[in-house]
Nucleic acid binder design. Structure first.
Length: 423
RNA sequence: GGAGAAAUGGCAGAGCGGUCGAAUGCGGCAGUCUUGAAAACUGUUGAGGGUCACACCUCCGGGGGUUCGAAUCCCUCUUUCUCCGCCA
């Protein structure tokens, strides 16, 4: 959520930047500024009325003490008038504030100046790539065929137990998953991230804090009986641990990580591109979250990119990094880099990580601030990134490491899997 | 799930329906003293809105009510603790 004070100060720049994500902001920003004016003037009137009522109450109290009941009764009438007036003003104020917030919720984050304009993923900029795309032997298979051939992932069984999009990993498939999780967590610890084990359901306030609510309820599974939401990513519990906090300068930066299953409804996604592990309702992911002072957040974003690069180098998977264009940028993000692994047998790139700086967009909702050396309170910046999302990494490993003798396990994983080949 | 008790500032802990945004202690910050530190002493120290700055307004778990006036009374929800039940 943008800050009204910033909208006032940078209106023209914001309108221009929002155009990069094809958001026409001029009229809505003007409405917001107008509502904010109304808010303040109504608040002032209300304050004056309440001040008079407070004063009056004190006088009435004194009159009762001195036994001047008649005078007190006269003042009580005035007090009743003030009460009516303040009721009206405060109702009006609530309505203005609620309208103001409704508008604020509809505005996406302002893209960073280096974000390219664009309308879809076609316009994302490839900024880096690494790793050779292997030339596979004749008869090489897509990962869902390999999964079946080696009996390591059972899609039908998951379909039977739960439904489409809930695969069951079996045997070496399950162990490979567990190996990847441990490997990713160990690497995160090496980079200074503190590990957490998190709730998989969150309350409404948390969904709101990170921007899943309101409006994007459809992405999350909702447990209506208890009004809880299954997390679509560990970002939600990780970031919301700090909701409402006032941190000290020496608490910063905060770097935390957690492995969780992630649940996504993905309503309306069907077709060939969601086959196999490409898109699931439940998948595993190790997530990184950082809370940074504003002046450090972009350096921290680069650090996260380096961390993920290192994972892919060690796994020896061919990958590329994209800088998302305005049209493809998530609602809450100011700058996002996507990592994609090449799926050789499918001949397409699969997104396996998304790393973003949200600047103050989340912290403004979370009321997450710190006190700087001079005692000034400032909103912090939040960042997060997947490191990594398991299913597509698994897909990449299966497809890129397939040989006629079976699937070779990447070197770095062997100490975690305890086997070096799936056959 | 049932019965009872509680929820106050960073923490601990007072608080009669009317100068209570809230005693006191600890902690934090600043100063005096000291070569330095500790101790001692003095001062200061919640958040949000608003203002050039004051004034002023709001907040004592959340919401509602009674009253001229509520941290204080009533209703309700949530959470925590104790006891009982159930349970990996």
């Amino acid at each position: 959520m943008l800050q009204v004070s910033n909208i006032r100060a940078h209106k023209e720049a914001y309108i221009k930047a929002l155009k990069k994500r094809n958001f026409e902001g001029e009229s809505i920003l003007n409405q917001i500024l107008q509502l904010d004016e109304d808010r303040r003037s109504t608040q002032t009137k209300l304050d004056e009325t309440l001040a008079e009522a407070n004063q009056l109450s004190k006088e009435i109290g004194l009159l009762f003490k001195t036994g001047e009941h008649q005078k007190a009764t006269i003042l009580k009438e005035r007090s009743a008038q003030l009460k009516d007036a303040s009721k009206e003003l405060s109702d009006g104020l609530s309505e203005i504030v609620s309208n103001l917030e409704k508008l604020l919720y509809t505005i996406p984050n302002v893209p960073n100046e280096i974000v390219p304009a664009g309308t879809s993923e076609e316009d994302n900029e490839e900024i880096y790539n690494e790793g050779d795309i292997p030339v596979l032997a004749e008869g090489s298979l897509p990962h869902w065929e390999l999964a079946k051939k080696y009996d390591i992932i059972d899609f039908e069984l998951g379909n039977k137990v739960t439904g489409a999009g809930f695969p069951i990993y079996k045997g070496k498939g399950a162990r490979l998953q567990r190996a990847l999780i441990t490997y990713f967590l160990d690497k995160a610890a090496e980079s200074g991230y503190n590990e957490y084990q998190l709730p998989l359901m969150v309350n409404e306030a948390s969904g709101f804090g990170t921007g899943q609510l309101p409006d994007k309820e459809g992405q999350m599974y909702h447990v209506t009986e208890d009004d809880l939401y299954l997390i679509p990513t560990a970002e939600v519990p990780l970031t919301n641990m700090f909701r409402g906090d006032m941190l000290q300068e020496n608490d910063l930066p905060i770097a935390c990580t957690g492995y969780t299953p992630c649940f996504r409804r993905e309503a309306g996604s069907y077709g060939a591109h969601v086959r196999g592990l490409n898109r699931l309702h439940q998948f595993d992911k190790v997530e990184l979250v950082r809370i940074e002072k504003p002046e450090n957040s972009y350096a921290a974003l680069d650090g996260m990119v380096d961390h993920i690069k290192n994972l892919l180098q060690e796994l020896k998977l061919p990958y590329r990094i994209l800088k998302l264009c305005g049209g493809d940028l998530g609602f809450t993000s100011a700058l996002t880099y996507d990592f994609e692994v090449f799926s050789t047998a499918q001949d397409r790139w699969l997104e396996i990580s998304s790393v973003s700086n949200f600047e103050t967009f989340q912290t403004n909702r979370l009321k997450l601030r710190y006190k700087d050396r001079d005692g000034n309170k400032q909103l912090l910046h939040t960042l997060n990134g997947s490191a990594l999302a398991l299913p597509r990494v698994l897909a990449g490993i299966l497809e890129n490491y397939q040989t006629p003798e079976g699937i070779i396990i990447p070197e770095v994983l062997i100490k975690y899997t305890g086997f070096d080949r799936i056959d």
